[in-house]
């Protein structure tokens, strides 16, 4: 048992809980319908609404997130442009900000 500031944590208790819950899950699962067959649409992922950009590849699995965060990622892409001069620019900016903060406060 380790105290973690405001609470405590014990991996063994966690593992016992996991074991108990998985037993319960197995019991519930064994009560289920036995005659399920994988038909055409039942096992497919369901996408609702909007444009569907996914090309059935795992790479595109977060396309909605990237779509929503488009402006952020555009800005980030401009920031990570791979030019060494800009790396130096960010460092100079950091030094100026740190000096400013340390001296003024």
């Amino acid at each position: 048992m380790i105290s973690t500031g405001m609470g405590s944590w014990s991996p063994l208790v966690f593992l016992i809980c996991v074991a108990f819950i998985s037993v319960v899950v197995q019991i519930i699962r064994s009560l289920g319908e036995g005659g399920f067959r994988k038909e055409e649409d039942k096992a497919e992922a369901f996408f609702s609404g909007g444009r569907l950009l996914i090309k059935n590849r795992v790479m595109d699995v977060y396309w909605g997130f990237f779509d929503a965060m488009g402006r952020y990622y555009g800005w980030m892409k401009r920031m990570h442009n791979g030019i060494v001069n800009d790396y130096v620019y960010w460092f100079v900016l950091l030094v100026t900000v740190v000096i400013g903060v340390v001296i003024l406060l």
Partner: peptide, 24 residues
């Protein structure tokens, strides 16, 4: 001392790759 502190700290931040200077 304050100026020296900021120079040293930002140099080490660059070395360990904290955010504004992490691209390298």
């Amino acid at each position: 001392d304050k100026v020296a502190l900021s120079l040293i700290v930002s140099a080490i931040l660059l070395k360990l790759g904290s955010v504004p200077v992490h691209m390298w």
